[in-house]
């Protein structure tokens, strides 16, 4: 049995955040909420990359997921709700 430190608890909690947010992004009806959930997934995954000693990948995920990805999804949702009608 390996030594279990407090950092393993941190890993477990952040993985729980990833799972809950991913299920929320896939299941939720409101598209705005789903976009926010996707942003949270990106944030938690970036921390896990840092924990796995990959700072380059963590910085890429941070640079793209913090601003660009969320905003592109929001613009797409806004432009298509004029076609489909709101909340569909």
């Amino acid at each position: 049995m390996n030594i279990v430190t407090w950092l393993n608890l941190v890993d477990l909690l952040v993985c729980l955040v990833v799972i809950i947010s991913a299920i929320g992004a896939a299941v939720h009806r409101n598209l705005l909420a789903a976009t926010v959930f996707a942003g949270v997934v990106s944030l938690a995954i970036s921390f896990l990359f840092l924990r796995l000693a990959a700072p380059d990948v963590a910085m890429t995920e941070a640079a793209i997921g913090a601003g660009l990805s969320t905003v592109i999804f929001l613009i797409a949702v806004r432009r298509t709700e004029e076609v489909e009608g709101k909340d569909q």
């Binding site: 942003g39 944030l43 970036s46 840092l50 700072p55 963590a58 910085m59 941070a62 640079a63 913090a66 601003g67 969320t70 905003v71």
Partner: peptide, 13 residues
């Protein structure tokens, strides 16, 4: 550096 990227860009979302 990763914390710095989040610190600067997080308010955009």
């Amino acid at each position: 550096d990763v914390a710095l990227v989040y610190g600067i860009l997080s308010f955009l979302g």
